[in-house]
Amino acid sequence: MRLEPRPSSSLAASILWPAGAILATIMFSSILVMIAGASPFTVFYLVFKGAAGSQFAALETLTRATPLIFTGLAVAVAFRARLWNIGAEAQLYLGAVMTVVLGTGAVTLPSAGLIPLIMIAAMLTGALTLLGPAILKTRFGVDEVVTTLLLNFIILLFVSMLLEGPLKDPTGLGWPQSKRVIAEAQLPRLIKGKRLHYGFVLAIVSAVIVWVIMKKTVLGYEMRAVGHNAEAARFAGIPVNRVIAKTALLSGGLAALAGFSEVAGLKGNLTLDLSPGYGYTGIVVAMLAMLNPLGVIAAAIFVAGIFVGADAMSRSANVPSYIAEVMVATSLLTMVAAIMLMRYRVRWR
């Protein structure tokens, strides 16, 4: 078996292959659903209904998509420049830590000043978290996949220590949780009485800004050049190491915004279950979006929809909600295969 590059991919192919990927995902999941003893049609209907069938469901999906947009953007930006940031989870948590450090009363300002201050501080924290692995990579050739991945566990333990120590809420009945952020530090809700908050708007704006950076600016050009061919970029005089460092700052900052928005917009305080792996799911989101910043919005909503819909479905159809993870994982695999088949033709001998 051999892969031959296709001279160019047609528009039809770039629609049909991803559509085929979704179809394959549904078919594979159907088999599992049938094994679980339910009807695929009912289950997929329930998933869809649970994700978008009502105002409540749709808002819940968007709320869940918000942190995924941030981590998806963080990963998309980094992967574009071939900086394999697997550590969005750690950057998210440190962004959240900075949010509660500044937002629980240490600084008192009106919202218009306090929220931007916390946001920038959180971004800086995340940015510096990724800068370390990036410098280790450019200076000493240390593989950033290893450093960023392992940093996730270190940071999670560090956060656990903080929550048992300096950041522990004295009124929390002994639970490892921080104090709640003060009212001035909270992101307002988009619709009164619903969970969707201004973090979602911030996520959309971030995606547009990242898109502009990648498409129109010198920095985005440098990042893409370094990602596609670092040797040629270096030869042309592009400062490769500095570009990687800038990429790390941008990516880490974006991931930290996920932590900021979850604490300041939704949860109100920091706990150890702030993120059910949003940092890792961000990788899936970025890959599904083919690293396109605007595509990240759609991919994040798609993935969030499956999770939210599957939760609702499992309550009524008696199929475990793990099916959501299978579907997301399968869609990633089929999408990666579809992208490859869009670019290459398979030859048997």
Partner: peptide, 13 residues
Amino acid sequence: HATGMIGDMSVSE
């Protein structure tokens, strides 16, 4: 291929 040009980018780029 390796040093002169970035194959996946356009002529302009």
